[in-house]
């Protein structure tokens, strides 16, 4: 009875009040999933930085929660598409939520990979790896976390300028990745016995790079959602110029 009276007083939003609620709940789910994925990346980074097996295990244990959220989002989208037959922006929101869900799921996978790296590097029966070897990971992790958080924010606020920032950040991330690889190479040349750990660390760096790439994809999806123009394969320079000139779409 209470919800009915609200519906009557609220003249805004979709004519089917329920539809707006469904969209809101989906967006909330994406936000939740985004927070969880960010947290996973952060914890995995900390596990490497602090050599904490406990943190690494907790990341691995939480992995299935992301998967559950992914499935929940998928099911809700399936249902809303079938029942509401959304159009235009509503449809783009649902498509975007669908893609963001799978990107976040992959981000979770990568975080899981980093946590497993921590478990490998800080095995109880072996000595801890050199801190210098690992220094690239927390630094890049911090940057990547910012990217993921910003991309989720850009989605929630439908802020394409913020999304553009994330896309532009990806170039810096690539540079950081290259720098880290270079310093690793130098390190391995100095101490070839550590080559096994170094290969693992490269994989960790690669995962972070991927996470950044996913954040970028999320941002491009946000631009599609807001503007209805597919910019997934457009060069960053042109995109930036168009968005700043307000001529996109």
């Amino acid at each position: 009875m209470n919800s009915k009276s609200t519906a009557r007083s609220n003249s805004e939003g979709h004519i089917f009040h329920r539809f707006d609620e469904e969209l809101q709940s989906l967006i909330k789910l994406v936000g939740e999933m985004g927070e969880l994925a960010t947290e996973q990346v952060r914890e995995a980074g900390k596990a490497i930085k602090k050599g904490s097996l406990e943190r690494a295990r907790s990341v691995v244990n939480r992995e299935n929660r992301i998967d559950q959220l992914d499935i929940a989002i998928d099911e809700e989208i399936h249902r809303v598409l079938a029942l509401r037959a959304p159009m235009a922006k509503d449809l783009r929101i649902l498509l975007t939520v669908n893609r963001i869900g799978s990107f976040l799921e992959r981000i979770g996978d990568q975080a899981n990979g980093i946590a497993e790296l921590a478990l490998f590097l800080f095995k109880e029966d072996s000595s801890d790896p050199d801190k210098r070897l690992l220094s690239g990971i927390p630094r890049m992790a911090k940057y990547v976390i910012a990217m993921v958080e910003m991309s989720i924010q850009s989605f929630k606020r439908m802020d394409i300028e913020l999304a553009l920032e994330v896309i532009e950040m990806d170039r810096d991330l690539n540079e950081q990745f290259d720098t880290s690889i270079r310093s690793l190479t130098t390190y391995v040349l100095e101490d070839p016995r550590r080559i096994g750990d170094a290969v693992q660390v490269v994989l960790g760096l690669r995962s972070l790079d991927r996470i950044g790439g996913h954040a970028k994809s999320i941002s491009r999806q946000v631009i599609f959602m807001v503007k209805g123009v597919n910019v997934r394969h457009q060069s960053v320079e042109i995109l930036a110029a168009e968005i700043r000139a307000g001529s996109l779409g």
Binding site: E12, D20, L23, Q24, I27, M158
Partner: peptide, 23 residues
């Protein structure tokens, strides 16, 4: 005259044709 379902998150950066806002 329009409201935004994300107004709690950010009341500023909305654009025309916003979801949840009825024209």
């Amino acid at each position: 005259s329009k409201a935004n379902i994300y107004a709690i998150e950010n009341p500023v950066t909305h654009q025309p044709g916003w979801i949840g806002s009825r024209v």
